[in-house]
């Protein structure tokens, strides 16, 4: 695995520059049942295809951003900074 990612702050770098934060999942907004809590903590969709996911520019600006990546081909379709509470990726 040696693809490139474009950090919204720093530009395009080798993937080894970054930390992977996994697929974006929504944190329960109200008190969850034990099953809901378990699913949030431990279950992943693990899609074969395009997925929105967190990345951390560990070797650069040390900021988190969001990428859309095809997990089959590693093609990165877009990267962007998170848009904050209320946005689709918000876990709050």
């Amino acid at each position: 695995m040696s693809f490139l990612l474009t950090c919204p702050n720093c530009g395009t770098r080798e993937v080894t520059d970054f930390g992977f934060g996994g697929e974006i999942s929504a944190r329960p907004t109200a008190r969850p049942s034990l099953r809901e809590l378990g699913e949030y903590n431990y279950f992943r969709r693990n899609v074969a295809g395009v997925q929105r996911e967190w990345w951390f520019h560990r070797s650069g600006c040390r900021a988190w951003f969001i990428a859309e990546r095809d997990t089959v081909t590693n093609e990165v379709l877009l990267t962007e900074l998170p848009r904050g509470p209320g946005s689709p990726e918000s876990v709050a």
């Binding site: 702050n9 720093c10 770098r13 080894t16 520059d17 520019h57 560990r58 070797s59 650069g60 600006c61």
Partner: peptide
Amino acid sequence: FRPGSIARQPGM
């Protein structure tokens, strides 16, 4: 200006 990995460490 290029933040990025330098000798496997965070750098700029």
